[in-house]
Design a protein around this nucleic acid. Structure first.
Length: 314
RNA sequence: GCCACGGUAGCUCAGUUGGUAGAGCACGGGACUGAAAAUCCCGGUGUCGGCGGUUCGAUCCCGCCCUGUGGCA
């Protein structure tokens, strides 16, 4: 395989990343690493489109079902686990195939940025969130300006999540957030062939609708009911994700299923759009037409990899 | 058939004492370092149902027509 360290498959939800990754794993002695923030949660199976039993049998998967449903998962944990997984796969002489729709996670792995050394400070964050809820975001943004002008320039005062995180890091480490981000980052994966699956928006919307229907037929609503019964709070990150948020409202009698379905597909379409915005600016992506048969896509990938190898061998 | 109320953005609707119009949602574009399927920012996309009339000028006033909803027959 020349110097190729890994393959990455990116693209919006429902574009066929998992199916392609499994075929690549079969052909290239690969193992699939999921770069998906929701597939990490145990118990959140149907609505997160985890690999099917058949797909799990055909390829070795990593980074799926790694945390309990009510536990938080985040970039830092992903980066740590993913780097370990890449190392293990490579040690086995296999090719890591990174499949994922979470742009931030892919960046954390492929481009190896360095995260602030301090772990999350839950108490501090809670305080800051309370202040934001009390309508102090403007004041908080002014404070950020005093402490870290660069960060303040990049974070909008209405963006409560980023605002509180920046202040949390600065107040616990005593260092500017923007400075910490500039720290030396190990470029772990230099030779990665990145493939992007794309298709016209309207076709993707149709696929999203179809998939949503199939998920519901597969018992998605029961899954949500089970998770809620097991005590997963509605405020937990996983329960606030696409579809789970709406179906939780259905279980609690706040929304009818008839109202929930169009809402879920709408939210998913908007999510797919955000994913495309992220991946469009990702450098070096080989874009592939996801509407063609899987074997055609596979052939294109193989051709690109061969070319890539000849170039790196030169 | 008659009466009443409607027809304005993709949808629901607001509005203009006559000077070619604006909200929410949808949709499009963008940002993104420990919640990222989260969070946030920007953008109005229009034969104002049609044809005439009055007027310097009509989406607005007048007439006719088309059409929707409700009521009376």
């Amino acid at each position: 395989m020349g110097k190729l360290q890994a393959i990455a498959v990116v693209g919006p939800t429902s574009s066929g990343k998992t199916a392609l990754s499994v075929r690549l794993a079969e052909l290239l002695h690969g193992e699939v690493l999921s770069a998906d923030c929701m597939a990490a949660y145990k118990g959140f199976d149907i609505g997160t489109a985890k690999p099917s039993p058949d797909e799990l049998a055909r390829a070795q998967f990593h980074l799926i079902d790694v945390v309990e449903p009510e536990e938080p998962f985040n970039v830092a944990l992903f980066q740590k686990l993913a780097r370990e997984a890449v190392r293990q796969v490579q040690q086995r002489g296999h090719l890591p195939i990174i499949a994922g729709g979470t742009g931030l996670y892919l960046r954390a792995l492929l481009h190896g940025f360095s995260l602030p050394p301090a772990a999350g400070n839950a108490e501090m964050r809670q305080k800051l969130l309370q202040r934001a809820a009390d309508g102090e975001t403007e004041q908080m943004h002014l404070e950020l300006q005093q402490l870290d002008a660069d960060a303040a320039a990049k974070i909008h005062r209405n963006d409560v999540i980023r605002l509180t995180r920046a202040l949390e890091v600065i107040l616990t480490t005593g260092q500017p957030f923007s400075q910490l981000q500039k720290a030396e980052a190990p470029e772990e994966l230099l030779h990665v062939a990145v493939f992007g699956l794309t298709m016209p928006r309207e076709l993707l919307a149709e696929r999203i609708e179809l998939r949503c229907r199939l998920m519901l037929e597969a018992g998605w609503l029961d899954e949500v009911r089970r998770l809620l019964d097991a005590g997963v709070p509605v405020s937990s990150p996983a329960m606030r994700s696409l579809g789970y948020r709406e179906l939780a409202a259905v279980v609690m009698g706040e929304l009818s299923l008839e109202e929930a379905v169009p809402e879920i597909t709408k939210q998913t379409r908007q999510y797919a759009k955000r994913q495309m915005t992220w991946f469009r600016k990702e450098p070096g992506v080989q874009w592939l037409d996801a509407t063609q048969p899987l074997e055609n896509i596979l052939n294109e990938v193989m051709t690109h990899i061969d070319t890539n190898d000849r170039e790196t061998a030169r």
